[in-house]
């Protein structure tokens, strides 16, 4: 159900549908060391998006150098969207293309942030469980993965943190000056406005790309 664009036409006093201003984040809660049997684990809530991440390794890769990258550690990311994550019960298959893209994005982001050259011939695997899905999936996954890697004590250049930003549609009157940015979109906003997830590695690392997420 598309909402009229005027809803997003913000002035200084206008609020979003969930009562936030344009620059306000949802409630953010995080824990580390949530699971005793994992090398590193974390649990992150951004509003109603709840993500659990466990880290295994660095360990010797299963294929024994099958990846061909012998000089540095490979980052293996598995994203698993639980069947009860959305509003309707839906199983997301392992071969889903959006999931594969998400895995590749997270993997490439951490390949450049972690000191992979310290662990040749090895693999670190990140298992990301999406327990509840309400927008900002990529940002929540990256933040949870950073926390789990901190818990695991894997050396990295800087903490990789991410946030989602969207842009309200133009009202049609002006020349685009009335388009307003929105920070940390929730699920219903993600279906309405174009958005981008930006991950940053702080001062040392610089920007680490991003991409549109779960549309």
């Amino acid at each position: 159900m598309p909402l009229p664009p005027s809803i997003y036409h913000l002035s200084s006093s206008h609020l979003r549908l969930d009562g936030r201003r344009w620059n306000e984040l949802r409630r953010l809660t995080a824990q580390i060391s949530t699971q005793a049997s994992a090398d590193g684990s974390s649990y992150l809530e951004m509003g109603n998006t709840k993500v659990l991440c466990t880290v295994t390794g660095p360990s010797e890769g299963k294929g024994g150098g099958r990846r061909g990258d012998e000089d540095s550690m490979s980052v293996d990311v598995r994203v698993n969207v639980a069947g009860f994550a959305g509003m309707d019960r839906k199983r997301v298959g392992r071969g889903d293309r959006r999931i594969t893209e998400l895995q590749n994005t997270i993997s490439s982001a951490f390949s450049s942030t972690l000191f992979t050259h310290l662990y040749p011939h090895s693999t670190i695997s990140l298992q990301i469980h999406i327990l509840s899905l309400d927008g900002s999936l990529l940002a929540a996954s990256l933040n949870a993965a950073t926390l789990a890697l901190i818990d695991a004590g894997v050396p990295m250049r800087d903490y990789l943190v991410a946030c989602t930003a969207g842009l309200t549609p133009p009202s049609g009157r002006g020349d685009g000056d009335d388009m307003d940015p929105l920070l940390d979109l929730n699920g219903s906003e993600e279906t309405e406005v174009p958005f981008l997830t930006v991950g940053t590695g702080g001062a040392g690392g610089g920007d680490v790309g991003g991409g549109g997420g779960w549309v």
Binding site: T34, A36, S37, S132
Partner: peptide
């Protein structure tokens, strides 16, 4: 979990969850 009718999380002492 807010989107489920009921949910539970359990951790055993050996670390399985």
């Amino acid at each position: 979990l807010p989107a489920a009718n009921g949910s539970a999380r359990l951790c055993f002492a050996d670390g399985t969850e």
